[in-house]
Write a protein that binds this DNA or RNA. Structure first.
Lengths: 133, 133
DNA sequence: AGGGCTATCTATAACCG
DNA sequence: TCGGTTATAGATAGCCC
């Protein structure tokens, strides 16, 4: 999408890389927003530049996205291990497995995602910034 | 980018919304990959369709991205509250604040991001799927 | 380094089988 | 409902300040 076709490989020139990063970052944030609105989807996007700077966008809030992600992952595990289909209580409290009961038939069950996502602070929104309006 | 211009607003027709979701989801995943490669960035993208299904992409791993996100957020908080610039220990252990010492001068400090990110299971990669090759 | 400006390349909306 | 196809809208690479 430019005056010339490019190959997708790391841009060596640091300045060019920075410029491209800035332009494409804006582009992908726009796409993420459009997808969320058009398709009624929940979208979370996290980008760290090569200099380590954080850029983020979430159609709802990053907390919500990560929280939901953790729950979805846990469900995937249960589906992948039907024999461990026992109730897992989602208390929404801070902590790991606390108060919940997990089945230990599955060898990977000890490494289950935990409800720690829920410990995100509601106040963190004040630190969020969306580079694309 | 199609036969006609569209307005960015929720697509009412369920079928059209699904079709657009599928196409644009592939598009944004491609963009995310390109950005990561071209600009040497770490990218994490999480999408929940309107039907609740999870789609994800991470240039490294989602665990890495979320983990780093949590740390970056904590740093942002420290920057936002210079007077609370005391050491926070990142143990990498499961739990909240456990073993770490947090300063309580700041009113928002009790709601600090915690090192719980590090409790992600390395095995979760086997459940990841990237819809866009 | 930053902010525009197009020529071009891409993504995709509308179609079609 | 579902993949392909194609005309167009949109994103952006290379330039210029």
């Amino acid at each position: 999408m430019g005056r010339g076709k490019i190959v997708i490989r790391r841009i060596d020139n640091s300045t060019s890389r920075q410029v491209t990063f800035s332009k494409r970052r804006n582009g992908i944030f726009k796409k993420a927003k459009e997808l969320g609105i058009l398709c009624d989807a929940e979208v979370g996007l996290v980008i760290f530049s090569s200099t380590g700077r954080l850029y983020e966008y979430a159609s709802s809030s990053m907390k919500s996205v990560i929280d939901r992600y953790g729950r979805a992952k846990e469900e995937q595990q249960l589906v992948a291990n039907p024999n461990s289909e026992l109730k897992v209580r989602w208390s929404g409290e801070v902590g790991v497995h606390r108060g919940g009961w997990l089945h230990h038939n599955s060898p990977i069950h000890d490494e289950l995602y935990s409800p720690f996502f829920s410990s995100f602070s509601p106040d963190l929104s004040k630190f969020s910034h969306c580079p694309n309006h």
